[in-house]
Amino acid sequence: EVTIKANLIFANGSTQTAEFKGTFEKATSEAYAYADTLKKDNGEYTVDVADKGYTLNAKFAG
């Protein structure tokens, strides 16, 4: 089991951190699915991958 950390950075400057656990593939998929649920209210996002894929920095356009 691994933990994927998602740093969510919103256009207004606020941030949120979420963690997803499971296999690498499952946890990564859940992190992206969570970011997708936030698109409606926060706009499209881009992701910078860090820490060999164990940290995802998602920046929302607003």
Rank of each mutant, 00 (worst) to 15 (best):
E1R: 10
E1M: 14
V2E: 05
V2N: 03
V2P: 02
V2C: 11
V2K: 05
V2Y: 06
T3F: 06
T3N: 05
T3D: 02
T3M: 08
T3R: 07
I4G: 01
I4N: 00
I4C: 03
I4P: 00
K5R: 14
K5H: 09
K5M: 10
K5Y: 10
A6I: 15
A6V: 15
A6R: 00
A6Y: 05
N7D: 01
N7W: 09
L8D: 00
L8R: 02
I9K: 07
I9S: 08
I9M: 11
F10A: 01
F10M: 07
F10D: 00
F10T: 03
F10C: 06
F10E: 00
A11E: 07
A11Y: 08
A11N: 08
N12F: 05
N12I: 05
N12Y: 06
N12R: 05
N12S: 08
G13R: 05
G13V: 03
G13T: 05
G13W: 04
S14Q: 14
S14Y: 13
S14G: 08
S14F: 13
T15I: 14
T15H: 10
T15D: 04
T15F: 12
T15L: 11
Q16I: 15
Q16Y: 14
Q16C: 15
T17D: 04
T17N: 07
T17K: 09
A18H: 14
A18C: 15
A18T: 11
A18F: 15
A18K: 15
E19K: 09
E19N: 08
E19Y: 15
E19T: 13
E19M: 13
F20W: 05
F20E: 01
K21Y: 13
K21P: 03
K21V: 12
K21T: 13
K21M: 09
K21W: 10
G22W: 04
G22R: 00
G22T: 01
G22A: 04
G22K: 01
T23G: 06
T23R: 06
T23K: 07
T23C: 07
T23I: 07
T23Q: 07
F24N: 02
F24Q: 05
F24D: 01
F24L: 09
E25R: 08
K26C: 12
K26E: 12
K26T: 12
A27I: 03
T28E: 05
T28Y: 12
T28Q: 09
T28F: 09
T28L: 14
S29W: 12
S29I: 12
E30M: 14
E30T: 06
E30N: 10
E30Q: 12
E30D: 14
E30C: 13
A31V: 08
A31E: 01
A31C: 06
A31H: 01
A31G: 02
A31I: 07
Y32L: 14
A33V: 06
A33E: 09
A33G: 06
A33R: 11
A33D: 07
Y34Q: 00
Y34S: 01
Y34L: 08
A35Y: 15
A35N: 03
A35F: 15
D36L: 06
D36S: 06
D36Y: 04
D36G: 04
D36F: 04
D36E: 13
D36C: 09
T37R: 12
T37I: 10
T37Q: 12
L38R: 06
L38K: 08
K39D: 00
K39I: 13
K39F: 07
K40T: 10
K40W: 11
K40D: 10
K40V: 11
K40G: 11
D41G: 09
D41N: 11
D41C: 15
D41Q: 12
D41S: 12
D41V: 12
N42R: 11
N42M: 12
N42A: 11
N42W: 15
G43I: 02
E44P: 14
E44N: 11
E44W: 09
E44I: 09
Y45A: 03
Y45C: 04
Y45N: 00
Y45M: 04
Y45G: 01
T46I: 11
T46R: 08
T46L: 08
T46Y: 10
V47Y: 05
V47W: 09
V47M: 15
V47P: 03
D48G: 08
D48N: 11
V49K: 07
V49P: 06
V49R: 06
A50M: 13
A50W: 10
A50D: 10
A50L: 14
D51N: 07
D51F: 03
D51G: 04
K52H: 14
K52C: 15
K52M: 14
K52P: 03
K52I: 05
K52N: 15
G53S: 04
G53Y: 03
G53N: 04
Y54L: 13
Y54F: 14
Y54T: 06
Y54R: 08
Y54C: 09
T55E: 05
T55P: 00
T55D: 03
T55I: 08
L56Y: 02
L56S: 01
L56F: 10
L56T: 01
N57K: 06
N57Q: 06
N57D: 05
N57P: 01
A58W: 15
A58I: 15
A58M: 15
K59Y: 15
K59I: 14
K59W: 14
F60R: 00
A61Y: 13
A61Q: 13
A61I: 12
A61F: 14
A61P: 07
A61E: 12
G62L: 07
G62C: 09
